[in-house]
Amino acid sequence: MREILRAFGGPLSLVIGTLVGFWLLILVAVPQVAMLDYSLWSQAANADLSAAIDRAYAEATMAEFDRRAEANPAKATELDEKLTALKRTIAELEAAQTSPPKTYGLQNYTRMSPLHAYIFVRTILSALAVAAVALVVCYPIAYAAAFAPTPRRAAILLTALLVPYAMNELLRVYAWLMIFDYRGVLNSLFAAVGLADLEARRWVPFLETQGALFTVMVSVYALFMVFPIMNTLQTLDPHQIEAARDLGASAWRIHARVVIPHAKPGIAVGVITVFMLAAGSFAVPQILSRGTGGDWFSQLVYRQFFEANNWNLGSAYAFSLLVVSLAIVFAMMRAFGVSLREITK
């Protein structure tokens, strides 16, 4: 803190401090705490309550009729008191109905149905698989880009990688949809060579498979794998590769012993980023599978919020996904043998 003050002076330090504080408090802490709070309580909608209210209203109307017909002042006073008491009861009951009492507890976390639990586990495993496939696909690309023989070739490769990302993610997903659709590009190609018949509805149902989802997710998130790996590879002294080769190592051994150990922090960052993006992906499964390829857990969360209108359960689902994903991230960091400090470098 003192160093920042010395380096930037008072006013600028204040700006920096305010912005960092704003970021941490408003953009990170408050939404998370709000979600955690939502996930920890529920309001039971009480059906008996509306019956009780109806009964109280009926009773009040009756009492009013009786009051109007009553001539005895002593009885009239008694009925007036009864009416006031009834009105108070009605107000209390109505208040209880419009905002039922919150019950705090872990009930939202223990209510997951077996089907939802299955989708939860499958989403996590699929996201891990997407990260693994992306790593296998992106490592050679990152290597080629980092060790391009001429700066020109590196620039061309990078531009080719970046251009698709200038397009909106949704558009890219729709483009893949056109490719994989029943009457899409791939099936048309298959039809052209006689492998499919669009008239007879004989086609490959790509969209109903996990493979299509994997392909699109890898393509949509590939850059988040390529760049961190490329960045770490660019810091590798090419002489180390030459030295290993000079000492007789095969290409495989050079990668296993020299290049990959060096790129490990980048690989960890890439795998973690792609895993988190894939686990929380909503648009890709929503657009692509259209209910034919099985749900992604994020779709369940969406439905709890906007269709079942149960924000408490939705929050609990979202928070569970966050906690499990973070646990997996830390497990991966331990498996990769990298610390948080190495990753943020």
Partner: peptide
């Protein structure tokens, strides 16, 4: 042959 690099290139 074996080559010793200018920057040694130790792993």
């Amino acid at each position: 042959t074996a080559l010793i690099f200018q920057n040694l290139a130790l792993f």
